[in-house]
Design a protein around this nucleic acid. Structure first.
Lengths: 233, 233
DNA sequence: CGAAATGGTGACGTTTTCGTGACAATTCAT
DNA sequence: ATGAATTGTCACGAAAACGTCACCATTTCG
C-alpha cells in the first residue's frame, strides 16, 4: 500500500503541504529541495514515484525529467510534474520530455492523490528486478548481465533492455510500436524499422551460444520471445 | 499511424472542432452525440481511444466511463474525459472512475493531441484477448499462434484474422461482404472472390493437421465455422 | 437435358515485409 | 583528444503474402 513518493520542491511551505497530504493518504514521503539532492537520494534507493516541481534552482524540473529518462535505472520511474496554471507550453514540453503526468498549481489535495494513484496503477505491471530464466538463458537485471551456461553474453544497453522486456513478456507477439514504447520509452521518436536492426543484433549475439529461434518473427505483426520452438508438418 | 479515436460530444460545433484537429493530426475520427450511440458504435468495433465529454444528454460521461470499465471487453480501453475548466471535483471523480486522463475546456489543440498521444503510448498491454478453443483448435490472439495438439499451424496474417473472426462467431454463416468488412476492414476494396481464395488457403493449412470440414461452404450465402461436422439429409 | 450460377483450385504478377550489411552521428572511456 | 562502442537510418535483395484471373467441377433451375 504505502508507496514511496519523492517530492522535489524548493518552496518549503508547499513541500510540507504536499507531504502532509500525501502522508495522510497513506504514502511514505521523501523530500528534496532541488534536483541535485534528489539525484543523490535516488542513488541510494529508487522511490516508487517522483513528484517534481517545474521551477527548481539549478537543474530545472524538466531537465531532471530528461536526465532520469535517459538513464537505464530510472527510465521506468513514474514522474509527475508540478507546473504553473495555464502554462500550456510547459505541459506539452513536460509530457514530451517523458513525464507521465502533470498537475497544475494550485491543486487540490484530492486531485493530486488521484493522479498519483492513477499513474501508479498504470505502471504496476513492470516491477521486475528478479533474475529471469528461460530457454537456457539467465538474465540478471540488477547486474545487467546475461548468462548462458555460465558464459557471459555481450549485449549493448538497448539489446539488453529489449531482451529483458521480451523475457518478461514471453509467448506473445509485440508490435514494433509497442516495443518502441516499452523498450525505448514513450517519448522517443525513432523509425519502427530500428527495432528490426536491434532484434537482428540481439539474435546475432545469442546465436554463437547455441541459442537460435528464441526470438521469432511474426510476419505482419511483430516479434515474439518463445521457448517452444516453431514446429512444422 | 492513424489510430481510431471515438469522440463522444453532444455539441455539434465542438465535436467538429475536435474532429478536424484530430484528423489533421493523423487520427481517424469516429463521432457520437451521446453515450448510447457511442455504445452502439463500440459494439461493432473497438476504437483505440475514446474522448468523452463530461456533460452528455442521457447517460453522463462519467457513467459511461464506469460502465466501460466494468465490462471485460472495454476494461483496457483508453479513455480521456473532457471537463469544464476549474471543475476539479469532476477531474478527481473522473480519474477515480477509471478515466486515463482529462482535458479541460477550452483546450488548445496541441495539448489535446499531446494528451491523446501520451495515453495511447501507455496503452495497457493486457488487452484481454482470450485464448479460443474449438474443434481441436487452439487460437491464442496474444501470441498470434494457432495450435492443434501442440503443433503449430502456419498461417499468414490474413488467414489468421479470418480464422480468428470465424472462431469468435462460430455456428453462423457470414457472407463474403461481411467477411470483407470484418476481416479486411470497412474501407478496403477487394473482390469478393478473394475471400474464397483465403478460405481455401486456410483449409489447406488446417487439413494436414487432420482438421477438415471445420469451415463449411453455404452455397449462395457464405461460409461458416462449425464444430459440429456437416451433416446431410 | 442444357444453360447459368456458384464455388474450388492452381497459377501468376505485384506489393509488402523482413533480414542484412554498410554508414554516419553520437556517446563514452581512456 | 583519440579511438572504441553504440545507435539510428538507409538501401538492397529475398521471401512471403496478397489479390486477381482463368479454368474446371458441381449445383441449380428453366
Amino acid at each position: 500500500m504505502g508507496a514511496n513518493v519523492l517530492v522535489v520542491e524548493d518552496e518549503p511551505a508547499i513541500l510540507e503541504l504536499i507531504a502532509v497530504n500525501l502522508e495522510q493518504a497513506g504514502f511514505h514521503v521523501l523530500r528534496a529541495a532541488d534536483a541535485e539532492s534528489a539525484l543523490r537520494l535516488i542513488g541510494e534507493a529508487l522511490p516508487d514515484l517522483m513528484l517534481i516541481d517545474w521551477m527548481l534552482p539549478g537543474l530545472s524540473g524538466i531537465e531532471l525529467v530528461r536526465r532520469l529518462r535517459r538513464e537505464e535505472r530510472t527510465r521506468a520511474l513514474p514522474l509527475i510534474l508540478l507546473t504553473a496554471r495555464g502554462a500550456e507550453v510547459d505541459k506539452v514540453l513536460g509530457l514530451e520530455a517523458g513525464a507521465d503526468d502533470y498537475v497544475t498549481k494550485p491543486f487540490s489535495p484530492r486531485e493530486l492523490v488521484a493522479r498519483i494513484r492513477a499513474v501508479l496503477r498504470r505502471r504496476r505491471p513492470e516491477v521486475g528486478e528478479e533474475v529471469l530464466e528461460a530457454g537456457g538463458l539467465k538474465l540478471d537485471p540488477a547486474a545487467r548481465r546475461v548468462l548462458v551456461q555460465g558464459r557471459v553474453v555481450a549485449l549493448g544497453p538497448t539489446e539488453f533492455r529489449l531482451l529483458h522486456f521480451l523475457m518478461t513478456h514471453p509467448e506473445r507477439v509485440h508490435s514494433r510500436s509497442q516495443l518502441l514504447d516499452r523498450v525505448w520509452g514513450d517519448h522517443v521518436f525513432v523509425e519502427e524499422r530500428t527495432v528490426d536492426v536491434h532484434v537482428r543484433r540481439l539474435r546475432a549475439a545469442l546465436e554463437p551460444h547455441g541459442l537460435a529461434g528464441l526470438i521469432q518473427t511474426v510476419r505482419g505483426a511483430g516479434y515474439r520471445f518463445s521457448v517452444q520452438m516453431a514446429q512444422e508438418a
